[in-house]
Structures are given as structure tokens and as C-alpha cells.
Design a protein around this nucleic acid. Structure first.
Lengths: 237, 237
DNA sequence: TTACAAATGTCATAATTATTACAGTTTTTT
DNA sequence: AAAAAACTGTAATAATTATGACATTTGTAA
């Protein structure tokens, strides 16, 4: 476990910082009309935190009262299971908000841990200020709303994925999605992390993958995949 | 599969119906200050639909553009897996909103099906009207927001639950939660539907339950449960 | 280039769970 | 009260997956 090292923290007036305009690159704020930018910058209160690779930004089970917006770097969120193993939940690249989902829920503990894949910078906006901004800036409110809604959709799909009974079905689902319609493509992650994403053991995943290759449904060469029988994969769902 | 029978549909001015005041019993609207009730009733546009037991109100994968508020009855939402089996997701009793989560997401298809456990009545408010109400009535907006946020928390917990590797762990988690701290309690549902909730087979669930009884961790008599060793159950998570 | 770490594919064995079937019990319906 | 339906517990067998180990290949840092 790596402890969080906060390199720099500033709670300050937004318009005084180099980050002031950067905030409008984040999807949450990008929809705010240009003529409201100055006003928004006066209203927003935030701090900036910098993290190193493998730092833990958010800890599963801990309470949080702020909106986190990732402005540089890349993180993964993961959920620990009963044996302390991690299941990867999602990957977030800058500039995107994180920890949007539970901020306004009755139980404000994070369901996941967020870990930096590389060095990261994060803008932190207190919940009360987010409330205020939502009331004052309608587009902010609407985008925030759609963000949480999308999170619901994402989690629902994730739930469906995890609920697929067999590794075969999960793999079929995953390959169809990752291929993006292409016949040949390259896996973005290692088999190891795929297995974690699936919540299964790595040998079992590889075995099933090779079985599918044996049946000529797919060709496999390390991370290079070719889908030969898309229809067969679809039937597994 | 039971087809939906719509007994009565009215798109109308709220203040003209017997349901007009009923809407404020729903948690989404109950926080609206009394002095705004008349105004709110003038602004809200909705229809009422009645369903019979086992009717399908919402179909998994279909698109929906309205907010559904259950004002009478009880429904379950379920997710079909690859074999057409259903995994129970949640149970909703009147008066509560349903289908809140994906209404404002980019993909407005429902991730679940909603089926009536008994005869039900539902208020249906078009998305645009919900938008309008949110902008005009701040408390409505805030409650709606917390509703979706809670949905995120719910799904996250559900995801964690489904991700527990063994039936033992799931059962321990479930019993601890259902017991609500009591030593003795009665299961609310059948083993059959518990198994569906867990996403496992019924015989496997019963077997594990009886194993735990054999180890004196719990006593089981049909639906009556007594927890003898709460600490041991907790260790399984 | 060498050396080392990470990723990959494979295997035997153990553990877990699904499937199918059946009989006894309880609840609901008629 | 009788009949039907739903629920419960059980068991044998089959299928799936986990575990732990190993050899090989690939990528990377020294």
C-alpha cells in the first residue's frame, strides 16, 4: 500500500491560478457558456492536489465531501473483494470528474478505491460549492445530472457483465465490445488484468480463450485477436 | 411472458384528478414546500397507468423517456442473464420513483425489466417536464439528485455483493444485512428467489446454508434463522 | 548486449457450483 | 376439506473454476 503524498494544496480563488481556465476543459464545466466563465471562476472554490504514480486518491469505504476532477493523468478505480483481491471497475483519463456518483447519496463513503496509473493532478471542489454552482449555473447542473445518470448506466452494464455466469460468456461479451466492430484488434490490457476485470483466475481465462481458439471462433496471438465467427460469440449472450 | 395491459391512461392537468395530491406522498415530491404545491400541480404534466400482477411495466433494453413513479403496489426489477434466467435486482414499494437512473443518461435504454408483484398504479411524467420541474423547483432537483446518487450507491453495493466469490461469502453478507442486528429473524423471501438474487442455483445455496448450520454458525428452520456466531460470518467478508 | 522482470501459455489437482431428480412439507386455491 | 401449487431439503453426477506450479517468451533497464 502506497501512502498518499500531497505535493501541493491550495484552497484559493480560482481566477488567481494557472488552473483557472483549465477547469473549462473538464466535461463538467465545458458546457458553461463563455460569457459566464468569469462569473463561474469567481464562484468556484477549489484546491489542487498532485499525486504520484500508485498513490491512492480515494480509499474504498472512506467518506468524501468533495467533487474530484482529474485534470492530468490517469487513474483506475477498483473494488476489493472478500479476499483482498481487487476487481478493476473503471479507468478514468483526464480531464474527467471522478467520485461523482456517491457525493450526494445518503452514504457518502466511496464504494471504490482510486489509484493513480501515472502522476496525476486533481481539482477538489467542496460539496457545498458544487451545490451552489448547480443552482446558479443551469448547464453545470444538467451536465452533472447526466454524468451521474451515465454512471448508473455504466454500473448497470457492469453488473450485467459480472452476472454473466460463465467465463465463456464474459469473454464473448468483452471481445465483442473491445473489437469495436473490427475483425482484428489488439487487447488493451494484460490477461492478468483482464482476469481481474472478469473476477476470475488468470489460468481459467486463458484456458477458455484457447478453447475458443481451438474451435476457430477466434485467433489468438498474445494480445492480438482476430474474430472469425462474430455470430457465434453473440449467441453466447 | 405477460403482456402489459393498460387499464386507464390519462394525460391531463394534475389538479383535475384524484391523484393530484397523492403525488406529494412520493419522496421525490414530498420535500416541495406546501406553499408551492398549487404551483407545482399546475406545472406538472403526467399520465396514470394501472397494471395487473405480473404485468411488465418496463422491459430490459427498451428506451424510455419518462419518469415513472409507483404510487400503488410493488414491483421487482430484474436483469436477464445469458440463459434467459433472471437475476433479481431490487424491490420497489409504493410510493417511490422507478427508472430514475437512466432517464438522463446518454443511453436511455432500461438496464432492467420491472415486473408487478401485485396490481400497481404508476404516474408517468415526460422527461422534458421533469427537466422543467427541476429547474423551477430547487428541492425537487436536489431530491432527484440524491435519488440518482443513492442509485449509484445501491448499484455499487450490489456489484460488490455479486462480486463476492463464494456462496458462503454472499450468504454471510446477506444474513448479516437481513438480520438488522437481531439474533433471530425471518427471511423475507423464498430460497428460490434468494438464489436468484445471489445468481446461483437453489440446491447450491441450500447446501451451503446447511453446512453453516452444521458448523453451528447459524440455526435454520425453513425461513427462520438464528445467528449464533456473528463474528465468524463477518470474517467471511 | 545482458540480465531481469513481467507476461504468457500450460498443466494436474482440488474445490466449488450447476444440473436433474425426487420426496416431504407448507401454503393457497377451489 | 380436498386438490393444487409452491416451497424446502437432499443426493448423485457433471461441469466449471481456483490454486499453485512451471517453462517459455517478451519487453525493458542496466
Amino acid at each position: 500500500m502506497t501512502f498518499v503524498r500531497i505535493k501541493k494544496t491550495m484552497i484559493q480563488h480560482a481566477s488567481h491560478t494557472v488552473h483557472s481556465r483549465l477547469i473549462f476543459q473538464c466535461p463538467l464545466c465545458s458546457s458553461i457558456p463563455a460569457e459566464q466563465h468569469d462569473s463561474f471562476l469567481r464562484d468556484v472554490r477549489f484546491s489542487v492536489r498532485n499525486y504520484k504514480k500508485n498513490d491512492v486518491i480515494v480509499t474504498q469505504g472512506a467518506r468524501y465531501d468533495s467533487l474530484y476532477i482529474l485534470i492530468a493523468g490517469e487513474i483506475v478505480t477498483e473494488m476489493a473483494d472478500e479476499k483482498g483481491d481487487f476487481m478493476k471497475v473503471e479507468q478514468i483519463r483526464a480531464p474527467h470528474p471522478m467520485a461523482t456518483g456517491f457525493l450526494f447519496s445518503a452514504d457518502n463513503r466511496s464504494p471504490v478505491s482510486a489509484v493513480c496509473k501515472v502522476d496525476c493532478s486533481v481539482i477538489v471542489i467542496p460539496k457545498e460549492n458544487v451545490y451552489f454552482l448547480m443552482r446558479k449555473y443551469e448547464s453545470f447542473m444538467l451536465v452533472f445530472l447526466s454524468y451521474i445518470s451515465n454512471k448508473v448506466s455504466f454500473l448497470s452494464e457492469k453488473l450485467r457483465f459480472v452476472s454473466l455466469r460463465t467465463i465463456r460468456a464474459k469473454l464473448a461479451y468483452y471481445l465483442l465490445k473491445e473489437s469495436e466492430g473490427e475483425k482484428s484488434f489488439r487487447l488493451k490490457t494484460s490477461k492478468e488484468s483482464m482476469a481481474r476485470l472478469f473476477g476470475v483466475s488468470r489460468p481459467a481465462l486463458v484456458k477458455v480463450m484457447m478453447e475458443m481458439a481451438g474451435e476457430r471462433l477466434i485467433d489468438v496471438n498474445r494480445r492480438d485477436i482476430r474474430i472469425n465467427d462474430r455470430a457465434a460469440l453473440q449467441k453466447m449472450l
